[in-house]
Structures are given as structure tokens and as C-alpha cells.
Design a protein around this nucleic acid. Sequence first.
DNA 1: TAGTGGTCTAGACCACCAT
DNA 2: TGGTGGTCTAGACCACTAT
Lengths: 256, 256
Amino acid sequence: MARAVPASRRLAEELRGAIAAGELGPGARLPSERVLAETHRVARNTAREAVRLLSDEGLVTAVHGKGVFVRGPQRLLRFGSSRYSNRLRERTGLSPYRAEVAEQGRVARVDCTSITRIEPPERVAVRLALDPDTDTVVRRENWYYADDEPVQVGVTYIPWAVAEGSVLASSANLGKGSLYARFEERGHRIARIREEVSARMPTPDEVRGLAIPDGVPVLDVLHTGIDQNDLPFEVTQFVMRADLNGLDYRMPVADE
Amino acid sequence: MARAVPASRRLAEELRGAIAAGELGPGARLPSERVLAETHRVARNTAREAVRLLSDEGLVTAVHGKGVFVRGPQRLLRFGSSRYSNRLRERTGLSPYRAEVAEQGRVARVDCTSITRIEPPERVAVRLALDPDTDTVVRRENWYYADDEPVQVGVTYIPWAVAEGSVLASSANLGKGSLYARFEERGHRIARIREEVSARMPTPDEVRGLAIPDGVPVLDVLHTGIDQNDLPFEVTQFVMRADLNGLDYRMPVADE
DNA sequence: TAGTGGTCTAGACCACCAT
DNA sequence: TGGTGGTCTAGACCACTAT
């Protein structure tokens, strides 16, 4: 005989089915935990456990005092290599983030919350080909919002030799064309990028800072900008809410 | 006065601190739920809740009957555009997956578990520029293992016009050089790829199939292969355990 | 057999939200 | 004020692992 399926899982499966079948569409409220418990003749904790299973899958979100709601698919902000296109930057004067958010009819905001000079973390030093003991970098922390909702954090590391004496090292306001225009003035025109992508659950700090619901992972992207002379001149670590952001890369395949 | 922090969260924080400080290193066993409950003077359910918070963060894994263990960082299998390199394929005869796994001293295995002919899903049809009502595709499902542990699933869709009459449409065993060598024989040499990356929590099916622990998301990669004439000839959806897989892309930036 | 995590009960009180 | 989710208690029994 088949192993018994726990009541909480059966209830979860039933609700999952209702969501998949569209009986509970995006935004719909689930029956309250107490109602679920009563109708299914289980303790409230058991019904609650079922809801938690769905929440951990990212299917529903609980709102204290209001109820549990079905999450709908959200339109993703899509970022790819084109966001670093020199042409795009020169034509629009818009940062790639602003362009993508505007495209979706939302309001973009970017805050530079801190600029410091530090010793580079190990993995940053490696990618910038710096000596972690003697070289320093400028660390710029940026928060990205869409309609005042935080969607990404980016921490950029710039070798001191590159940033020294420019607004890169001192000012939150970078002026027209933003970051990469300033790099170009310093002799570094972006030619190639490397992006190392992984995904993980957010840390408690990230959950707070980005207001991340249960059951939503983050994309962790380590970006390296490389100039016309094959020199890496900038590393940025992006942490993105995975329910609001995606990546869209187009690239040639090495031939010959 | 500051809002009170629930006991379960305080306990979780304490354990998180012990893990971060290295007092509980990778592989270490946490005190049992009953011991935690007694030493912290809370009910077992409360201690259990604390452990669950850590589990949902991906910091620990519970093993029924044995205990709760600290998860260590695992070495990622890294995949990027180079895996589609024609040169690599021609030089080694190895599939890119096998090459990466071998590099890490692990044993690779790939199983093709099904080959069917179907109407393409909407998003596949769009990327292959097919008519979803009249065109059909060959669907090949592949499971990827490292040391007999499942790490990825890939579902490849190939237009019938491309696959017709070749082993692509019929045989799990593709022969030397594997998939892309066969495409080339059919006149499609891979020139560019597009990869659309997102992350999410796994479905219950994926949890079962890939044996995914709690607190581990998946990378969901929609890959499109494009040939020398700018024709898309293949779409693959990869679902990868995010604790074992990463992506590593290097690409030029559009200039001028 | 003893110890572990997994599930469940039947309560209780608190914090948040709408009316 | 009444309904919602959030937290907690003090038990109970089951399923799995080790010895």
C-alpha cells in the first residue's frame, strides 16, 4: 500500500490544484486558515502548514491581518549585455536600468547610498587583477527602484587608479551618460563583459532591504567590465529579486 | 521600546551567528530540536521553527532520523557560452556538460529519457519562429548527473523540418560530438545563442526529480541556438539546481 | 531500543487590518 | 470590534537511523 500522504500536504496539493486550474487566480484570497482547518477537519496549525508549503514555493503570499493571496506572474525587468552598449548610452543618455524600467511604463529611481574607499574583497581583487593587500578600490553602493519598490542592489568596485580624482570616487551624481561615460573619459571604453550568475535564497538583511516575500530567491550576478585593451576596470555585484528581474543575454559562439 | 523579537527568530539568529562564526562548520550537526528547546526554555515547536527558518535560507539541511546539518558551500558547475564553442566540440568530441564535470573530478552521465513529436509550447514557437498550430517540433528530455546525483534537466525543442529523418528525431544516442554536430550535418552551424535566465523555487515535481533540498532555488534558463544564417534552430529549457550550478558568460558589448 | 526529525492536536495570546 | 495571520505551548504518535 502506498505511504500515507500527510494531511497538510494533501491540503496544499488541493490548493495548488485550484491555483493551477485558475479557480484561484492571481490576487485571489485563499480561505482563512481557520476556515480551511474547519472545512478539512484538521487543526489550524495543520492548515497553516499547508499554506506555508505553498508560500515556500512562491505560489502565495501571506499578508498579516488581511489574508493569503495568490501571486501572479509578474512582468520581469530584463537585463542583458545590451545594457552596456556604448551606442545605446550615447544615443539616449539614459542608463540601461532607466531605459528598461521606462519601457515597462514604470518609474525608475537609482540611489547611490554610499561611496567608500576600501581594500577589495578577495574575489573582486582577483577579477580586477589587483593585489588585495596593497591596492584599494572605490566601493559604490546603488539601490534600484521601480515605482518606489526596491528591485535590485548593486555594489560596484573601481580600482583607485581608475577612480582617483574623478567624480567616480567622490560624487553620487555622475552626470549625463552616468557610470560608463565617466569610465570612458578615464580611458576605459567598455568592450567586453563577464557575468557570473548564481541564485540563492536571500539573507535576512536582503529580505529586509529589498522587501522580499517568502519563497522568492535572488539572482546574484558578479559583473566584470573589460576595456578595449582587455583590462578589467570595474566589478559590480548585483543582487536582484528573482520575481521581478531576469537576464537576457545574446552572444556569439566562439567559432573557427 | 523596540518591538519584541520572537523567540524562534532569536534562536535562529543565535544559530546563524554560530554558523557564520565557524563554531558550526560545514557538515556539523546542530543540537537536536529537543535539546534546543530545553536549553532555551521553549517548546519543541518553537525550536523547530527556528531550525526551519535556517533551512528556508538554505543554511542547514534536516535529515530524517539523523539530525540537522550545516550546509557548506559547494563547488559550482559553471556553464557559459563557451560550452557551445564549435572549436571545443571539434577538438575534444566531448559534450560541454561532460567537459565541465570532468574538470571537477566528478563522473558525468546524461540520460535522454524521452523523444516525442509535439506541438510547440507558445514561448518555444515564438523563439523558433514557428506557427504553433501547424508546425510541430521534436521534444527531447535530458537528465544530467554528476556522480549519479541529478543536477539539471534540459528539454530541447527542434523544428520538425530540422530533425526529420535524422537521429535527432529518433535516437537517444547521438554519436560523437553529440547534438550540435548533428545540427551541423543538417546545415545549421551554431553562430549565436540567446539565453534568458530567471530563478524561482522548484515545483514539487522538480524537488522530487532533482532531489532538491529545502531552501534551494533553481535556475531556469531558456536557451536558443541560432545558426550562421540567423535562423533559430533549437530551443532548450534548462532547470538547474542553483546550489550546484552557475552560469559564466563572457561576451562583447555592442560598440559604435 | 533510543534518539532523531515529521506530523498533528487543541488550545492560547498577540499584532495587524478593516469597518 | 471582529477577522486575519504570527507566535507559542505542552503534549502525542509516527517514520527513519543507528547501535
